[in-house]
Simulated assay, not measured.
Amino acid sequence: QIEDLKKYAISQDIEIVNVFQEHVSGAKKIEERQILGECLEYCKHESVNILLLSELSRLGRSTLQVLRSLDILHESKVSVYIQNLGLY
């Protein structure tokens, strides 16, 4: 998944500044997902323009968790690309 996202970034002339890879169930709350928390904080504080995700479930398993993650990103003016949906 990471290699596919890297290829997408290159094809879209997107500079990769960091890669976050999580091996924890998406069913856990955001607070319990250390890597997701680090990613959201990084995006907030490092003026990230776009976050590339392999699938929506990387932001949470429940609708509420996904919306909370998207709200954090939206407040920081971070766009999101979801690879398996082809959605930007």
Rank of each mutant, 00 (worst) to 15 (best):
L64G: 03
K77S: 10
S62K: 06
G60Y: 05
I72H: 00
Y81D: 08
L70G: 08
L51H: 04
S62M: 01
H74I: 06
R68L: 13
E75N: 06
G60V: 04
R61T: 09
S69T: 08
I72T: 04
R61V: 05
V80I: 14
V78I: 03
R68S: 13
S76M: 00
L53H: 11
S62D: 03
L56T: 06
L56Q: 14
S62G: 09
L59Y: 07
L53N: 11
L56F: 07
L64R: 07
S76K: 01
D71K: 11
L56M: 12
L53I: 11
Y81M: 06
S76N: 10
S57L: 02
E75D: 10
L51R: 07
H74A: 09
S76I: 01
L53V: 08
L51P: 01
L70I: 13
I50Y: 03
S62A: 05
E55P: 00
H74T: 12
I50V: 15
L56P: 01
I72N: 03
Q65A: 15
L59Q: 06
E75P: 00
R68W: 03
T63N: 15
L70A: 08
K77L: 02
V78A: 02
L56K: 11
H74D: 12
L73T: 12
L51V: 10
V80F: 06
S62H: 03
L51N: 08
D71R: 13
S69C: 11
V78K: 00
S62I: 01
S54Y: 14
S69Q: 03
R58I: 00
L64N: 09
L67Y: 11
V78R: 01
L53F: 12
V66I: 15
L59F: 08
S57Q: 12
S62N: 03
S76R: 03
H74P: 00
